[in-house]
Design a protein around this nucleic acid. Sequence first.
DNA 1: ATTGGTGCAAAACTTTTGCACGGTA
DNA 2: TACCGTGCAAAAGTTTTGCACCAAT
Lengths: 169, 169
Amino acid sequence: MPKSKGQEAVTTGPAAEEREEFRIFYEHIKRTGLKKTGQRDMILDVFLRTEGHVSSEDLYEIVKREDATIGFTTVYRTLKLLQECGLARNVQSYDGRMLYEHDFKHDHHDHLICTSCGTLIEFFSETIEKIQDRITDEHRFKPISHSLRIFGICWECQVRAEKESRSRR
Amino acid sequence: MPKSKGQEAVTTGPAAEEREEFRIFYEHIKRTGLKKTGQRDMILDVFLRTEGHVSSEDLYEIVKREDATIGFTTVYRTLKLLQECGLARNVQSYDGRMLYEHDFKHDHHDHLICTSCGTLIEFFSETIEKIQDRITDEHRFKPISHSLRIFGICWECQVRAEKESRSRR
DNA sequence: ATTGGTGCAAAACTTTTGCACGGTA
DNA sequence: TACCGTGCAAAAGTTTTGCACCAAT
């Protein structure tokens, strides 16, 4: 099974507490009567440093490298919190696993999903968005979110497959 | 968890073996060196009588009513066969379960999925299809299939929620 | 002090697979 | 006879939950 990709690019930025994402998170925590903890801070910090799409397991693996005492459950539950306050968004991968991506100051978009290597490529179409609005109106359906996924083979995998088939001859 | 809906409308038609779907199935069976069995016939027959979207478990439950000796595994594997020969198509529901729908002489379409009752409503947009082609071209992505799902609340559930909130006052 | 948080272990579920026995060609 | 199919049980792989102990307010 392909690992989710692109989760390891590291960026150095302002101190944790100064970042807007943390302010949003803390507000959410205060508003819902939860508590600020070191684990949650660290998980959010790691999540913000990821790029692309991670599963809860992926994120747990990265977190574990920096603090092996943090449990999977906490990562899992923190991802739920991040979704609630609009910092994370989830996408169902082609194999049924749930992946998470940044949702703060990231415009809505859809995905091309390579069923060979698991990569997700983002794209956006204003026209598709508008048509969706028209369709939900017609059905008196109250839309909450949507997910357009195009499954297929990404260019890299096509090239690789071609190369492999040539060398086999 | 909402049960998948609409799987029980029964239609009486021509004898099994005369139906085009069965010819397609038998051809697939012959072509791939498999064998015709009573179980497979019955599962296909039941599947053809369903409407809407069923999970493998749903289909198993219906099949079991007509023949309690058939096992889940056989239903599950037969659904795979039906997909292979183009009689069934699958859709991932909002909760991660895989649902199956008819794919023979049924045009491609997308779904509005009610996250309250689980109902799937079908729709189609030629424009969206065309835009998808343009996008995959731009990314040199080789499309295999796609899935556009709009999650939200269907009209019936909206009405029901409204009614309930009124009676609570 | 309270109330919520954490980590572990286990439950819940669906999807898949291994295997011994029985049926089809 | 030689395969393939079937049903059972169990494996796999995630997502969720119960609980006892710990930490934040």
